[in-house]
């Protein structure tokens, strides 16, 4: 079991990554969705600091049903880009409310990367790129932090992941250039 300080540190990393991934969507998400996610982030960090109890299964189920209902009411669907993004953000908030094990953190970081992808689906301009690339980096650094198992030897998470991303770049470029594009959508 992790000691409280360490748990809080990991939670801060994940929350920071999630909020950064959510930021490009704030312009088009309904205010209540953004509000709920941010409130969940703040509440979870406070709960960790103050030692509050996390919500039980019944409450979480109620929140999940309420969130889905809210998305249907606001967007009239849960599929599609708008509804899907809203649902993804809400599910991230819900997952945050039950984050204890390192695995929960990893799920949140995966959702963060999905939100980054969704940001590109909304806009492919240079501003989005300039924002999303650092967010991807932040999420990767957060993953490095939450996946650590020992205490010894503190690494600089940004330096370490930055080095790995630089190594990944040429390979990604090759894949990007030579991967066959399938025409049309399915």
């Amino acid at each position: 079991m992790l000691e409280p300080g360490e748990q809080f540190r990991r939670l801060s990393w994940t929350t920071a990554g999630l909020v950064a991934a959510l930021a490009p969507h704030m312009a088009h998400l309904r205010v209540w969705v953004t509000g709920f996610v941010l409130a969940a982030c703040v509440w979870r960090l406070l709960a960790e600091r103050r030692g509050w109890r996390l919500p039980g299964v019944a409450l979480r189920t109620a929140i999940a049903l309420g969130a889905t209902g809210g998305v249907i009411a606001s967007y009239s669907t849960i599929t599609g880009l708008d509804g899907g993004t809203a649902l993804l953000a809400l599910m991230a908030a819900l997952k945050l409310l039950e984050t204890r094990a390192p695995r929960d953190h990893v799920v949140l970081i995966f959702i963060g990367w999905f939100l980054c992808l969704a940001a590109f689906l909304y806009a492919q301009d240079i501003r989005t790129v300039a924002f999303v690339v650092p967010t991807v980096w932040l999420l990767a650094a957060a993953l490095l932090e939450v996946a650590r198992r020992g205490h010894g030897l503190a690494l600089s998470p940004f330096r370490a992941t930055g080095a790995m991303l630089v190594k990944a770049l040429p390979l990604a470029l090759v894949l990007f250039l030579f991967f066959p594009r399938i025409a049309g959508s399915f």
Binding site: W113, C116, L117, F120, L121, Q124, T128, V129, V132, V136, A140, M164, L165, A168, L169, L171, A172, L173, L175, F176, F179
Partner: peptide
């Protein structure tokens, strides 16, 4: 850009 992100993460 989405494809680029996917490939970047795969390479990572």
């Amino acid at each position: 850009l989405g494809l680029g992100l996917t490939f970047l993460l795969a390479s990572l």
